[in-house]
Simulated assay, not measured.
Amino acid sequence: MTAFDPAGVRLVATDLDGTLLHTDGTVTDRTRRVIEALEARGVLVVFVTGRPVRWMETLWPHVGDHGLAICSNGAIVYDVAQHAVSELRPIPREVVLEVADVVRREVPGTAFAVERADGFGKEPVFHPEGPTGPDLRVASLEEIAGDGVAKLLARHEELDPAGFWARVEALVGGLVTTTWSSVGALVEMSAAGVTKATTLAAVCAEHGIGPEHVLAFGDMPNDLALLEWAGRGYAMANAHGSVLAATEHHAPPHDEDGVAQVLEDLFGL
């Protein structure tokens, strides 16, 4: 890979929770000014998040004029200007059901939910972490799993997060891409080969941008592939230990506007 040159950065890819956002979920004025300054220089700022589209409404004003975000760990590319999904990389329904059957059999007590482009569905025993919205559907997995599943979520109320993820990965890692970004035992599954990194790589290719021109920020295991693919990847100081150990470059904590601090230094803002 070509050596990273800050002057050649054409795109900044940043995770949201634990990275760009403060603990209270807000974008500060300082961070907003930095994003606007980069946009004015022609540098694209793309949000690359595990969040579903339904959790993004209050953040769209901060995306920038290009109006682009990658949601659901790479399963969805969203056109903000058009308020529409421009690309969906779904898990086939038969794979959703096969994965659930295997995990249910081998890890009793696992509950499931699905993130879809058109809403959220969950089994009655699945306890979601965030708001579910008016489109919530509560039913069996067979009923809520269709052809538009962006993410399959598996939760266990008793197992530790790392151990649960390792178990699920060992069981179904050949069928789906598994990762986790939660403090609880919640495993997020995308279609095989779909990650934040693979989708961003496809978006960058459409814009003629190579990884050497990309700067990335993240804090959790679902960001690792992104940080490794980018010309330079920064783990936040508050990042999960595995992410800090795997990355050379670290940014100040998210509650200290760490992303903004790094960008101000690199671009002389």
Rank of each mutant, 00 (worst) to 15 (best):
V168S: 04
A170I: 00
L136F: 02
A81N: 15
L186P: 01
F112I: 00
L152C: 13
V172W: 02
G121N: 02
L159M: 14
L153I: 09
L186R: 06
D135H: 06
V95C: 10
G119L: 11
D147W: 11
E98H: 14
V103N: 00
A145C: 12
V183R: 12
V176E: 01
P124Y: 13
A145S: 13
L141R: 00
L136M: 09
E106V: 09
G148E: 06
W180L: 04
V149Y: 04
P92Q: 01
T110S: 15
A84D: 08
E87F: 04
E158F: 14
E123Y: 07
P128Q: 14
F164G: 04
V172N: 03
V114M: 00
L136Y: 02
L97D: 04
V138P: 03
T177I: 07
V85R: 04
D101I: 10
Q82K: 13
V102Q: 01
A81T: 07
G174T: 10
G121F: 02
T110F: 12
V183H: 10
T178P: 09
L175D: 00
L171R: 10
E188N: 11
P92M: 05
V114S: 03
L152W: 03
E169T: 13
S140V: 10
S182H: 15
A154M: 15
R116N: 03
G173N: 12
D101M: 09
D101E: 15
I144N: 06
A185N: 03
H127I: 13
E94I: 02
E143C: 07
A150F: 05
R137Y: 06
V187N: 04
P92Y: 02
V107Y: 06
Q82C: 10
R93M: 07
V187W: 03
M189H: 02
R116K: 11
D135A: 10
T178V: 12
D101V: 11
A113L: 03
Q82V: 05
D118W: 09
E143G: 11
R104S: 14
V102L: 08
G184H: 09
